[in-house]
Design a protein around this nucleic acid. Structure first.
Lengths: 343, 343
DNA sequence: ACGCCTTATGTAAACCTTTACATACATCGT
DNA sequence: ACGATGTATGTAAAGGTTTACATAAGGCGT
């Protein structure tokens, strides 16, 4: 029973007094085997504690029961909850997940290519917007894949994310409702689609409020804390100060708050700030950040569900799933101060 | 070249005009094959883009190249950096890692047992102090395993962590050096060894300073934010206030700070607070938390290195590796205020 | 009673590798 | 010149599973 080497299908077959084919069928196509035999097999399985050897099975089937999840940074606060969603859904369907992080290093990406080529993963979940591996040639060989947050590189791969435009719209609308008219957008970027879309929401909100766009207060950024801080400095140097900072993500917002704090300003009294993502820190920084929440667990679940569908059907039913983002009101937004609204 | 089905060892053998055995040897025991043939084989590999099929290899070898990492909570801020260390070290030796989180649910743990039984993981890294699976019977069948942070359940498994006693000692010594004499210990627990050891460091520090222990200001806790908050309430109700709170971890410290803030006190003016772990939030909360840094990447690296050693040797060289924790001074500690030091 | 269809089970090949063993050949010491 | 030793390569088995195909048996219509 508690043998050193695990039981094989043959052990089960011997005890149940059937052939190994029957055992395999009893497990995977129960309706194809007589009730009485199925019972014998099940008993034998219980006795031996048999578990299918996944290696042999994958080898035979030519496909594994593992899904590779590639992310640029596992430590990213956005990542872990997505993972929960991914994992729960995967396991519910008999798949396991394998995690790799590229650390934005192309070399790393290549190593994961090996996994794929050696059939260790049946499917792929891509977090980066850019395919981590040697682009064009590889695409053909990629297993069924799903992107998270953003469509991947050269398309053809469905993805699930949040409706960035709508989320940004909610943020800008809140700011407008509070009475802000000079609202900066921090973190503009043409390379990341999610950021581009958030910019679109910002533009749309301003437009709907009849406020003409002012590119002097739209600053570029790469979503890091440093980029937020830098943007604040630029605005002060150019003397084109807004009353509110709508940031492309929470990290940027934190940078903005740090920059503003370093110059002695109080938030939200002197300036309002909004973020995007609702990372765990958002609630701990001071003041707690008003931001847009990503339904992370749901995103993970949906992404995996889509991938599993691809794995069985082979054909994606939809090419893009956008979830609804929610506004989370905390304490970093208020009406514009008298001082600044004069400008 | 860019065939639909990946190249096998036979394709390589045919092109290189050798037998498959030679190809295998050229890859895994290069010194056993003549230079000229090795060259031919390498060229053939380059042409075909061959990668060893991990399934077949694992099946043949009877062991996989995957390491299962089981953690109670992937979202734990302590987790991700450890993972980086684990993963880097693993990949450097040709292993991949597989992540599972039990969410403190025994049922979940059982599902991972299947992975192990089906030979999908060659080794195991355990984050929980408690073996996640049906305890006694299973231990025999466990693959080589290493614990992180704490020894696992019933021992026999080496572990790597931080020297909790020393870390706690550094925190209490800082507080003492600032002049504190009434230092509370928040988060005492007999079930988690790491916490018990931190308590030991606290006791030792007090003892060395000639301060008699005062159990009225040693409160239990489970390391959650809520537990820290609760402890503060208790101390106020009992009217046994300390001048400083030494917390068993950062979460508890955050809870303490929240509780103190809710009562209108300023940190560090009215009370000093220290944490343990140096989670990413520690720098963002206000005031930034003075705490003990866990060398997380190093812990991960060491744990994996130990496991790999186990996998080759089969015998652990050491049963416990304790890394040195560092004090990180931020802004939550100052000399005791005049008001409170009068007590 | 016979052929035919259906249902339940068994046999054996295939998936791709690694490696013990066998073979072939070259080198060396005598 | 010959046996011994060593080196380089090939042959074939084994690892655990799934499944196409073969077989066997039972039921049914005529």
């Amino acid at each position: 029973m508690s043998n050193s080497t695990p039981a094989t299908i043959e052990d089960v077959a011997r005890i149940a007094e059937v052939s190994i084919a029957t055992v395999s069928r009893a497990i995977h196509m129960p309706e194809k085997v007589a009730n009485s035999t199925r019972l014998k097999v099940n008993q034998a399985i219980a006795i031996t504690g048999y578990t299918t050897n996944a290696m042999a099975r994958s080898l035979r089937l030519g496909r594994s029961n593992m899904i590779l999840v590639v992310a640029p940074d596992i430590g990213d606060p956005n990542f872990s909850n997505i993972l929960v969603g991914l994992e729960n859904e995967a396991r519910a369907h008999g798949y396991g997940i394998l995690i790799g992080h590229t650390q934005n290093d192309a070399q790393r990406g290549l190593e994961y290519l090996k996994f794929l080529n050696s059939n260790q993963a049946a499917g792929l979940i891509l977090f980066t917007g850019i395919l981590p591996f040697g682009h064009q040639t590889m695409t053909a060989r990629l297993p069924p894949s799903v992107g998270v947050f953003e469509p991947v590189f050269n398309g053809g791969i469905p993805y699930v994310g949040v409706d960035d435009t709508e989320g940004a719209r909610k943020a800008v609308d809140l700011l407008l409702a509070e009475g802000h008219r000079k609202i900066a957008f921090i973190g503009d970027s043409r390379t990341r689609l999610a950021y581009t879309r958030r910019r679109m929401g910002y533009d749309a909100g301003l437009d709907a409020a009849g406020i003409p766009p002012d590119t002097r207060i739209v600053l570029e950024g790469d979503g890091t804390i440093e980029s937020g801080r830098h943007a604040v400095e630029q605005l002060f140097m150019r003397d084109t100060l807004p009353t509110a900072f709508m940031c492309v993500n929470d990290q940027t917002a934190i940078g903005v708050m740090v920059g503003l704090g370093a110059r002695g300003y109080d938030i939200p009294r002197d300036f309002s700030v909004t973020g995007f993502d609702d990372v765990p820190q958002a609630v701990f920084i001071s003041p707690p950040l008003t931001t847009i929440r990503q339904p992370r667990t749901a995103i993970g679940k949906q992404a995996m569900a889509l991938l599993l569908e691809l794995l069985s059907d082979g054909r994606p039913t939809e090419t893009e799933i956008l979830l609804r983002p929610d506004l989370v009101v905390r304490n970093s937004v208020s009406a514009p101060s008298r001082n600044w609204s004069k400008r």
